[in-house]
């Protein structure tokens, strides 16, 4: 029973994190939310009796994917609609 309630809470957390990741304008926050999705997913894999997959997901999804996204954001742009604003400025100048 306890495990069942835990699974329900984790599933709700996963949906909430994915909605947050899609709606957030600040891409850094969105990337951290995808890291949370991976963390919750790894706990779920453990509860679904798949310890091998849980280890892989914890190492790849939480650490490596997040860091590679963060490096990309540092090299490009942080806000989602910054380029959109640029375009508006450009079109106003024309």
């Amino acid at each position: 029973m306890m495990a069942f309630i835990l699974i329900l809470i984790l599933l709700a957390l996963m949906i909430a994190a994915s909605v947050y990741a899609v709606r957030q304008k600040d891409l850094l926050y969105a990337v951290i939310a995808t890291g949370i999705i991976s963390l919750v997913l790894s706990i779920l894999f453990y509860l679904l009796q798949a310890p091998d997959v849980a280890l892989t997901e914890a190492a790849i999804g939480v650490a490596l994917t997040t860091i590679i996204f963060v490096i990309t954001i540092r090299n490009t742009v942080r806000m989602e609609d910054e380029s959109d604003k640029n375009k508006n400025i450009k079109s106003a100048a024309k």
């Binding site: 990741a21 899609v22 891409l27 999705i37 999804g61 490009t76 742009v77 609609d81 959109d84």
Partner: peptide
């Protein structure tokens, strides 16, 4: 419309 958001979406599909 942002390319990074599209990549984030694809990684969510993967999960």
């Amino acid at each position: 419309k942002s390319l990074l958001k599209i990549v984030i979406g694809l990684s969510i599909v993967d999960s």
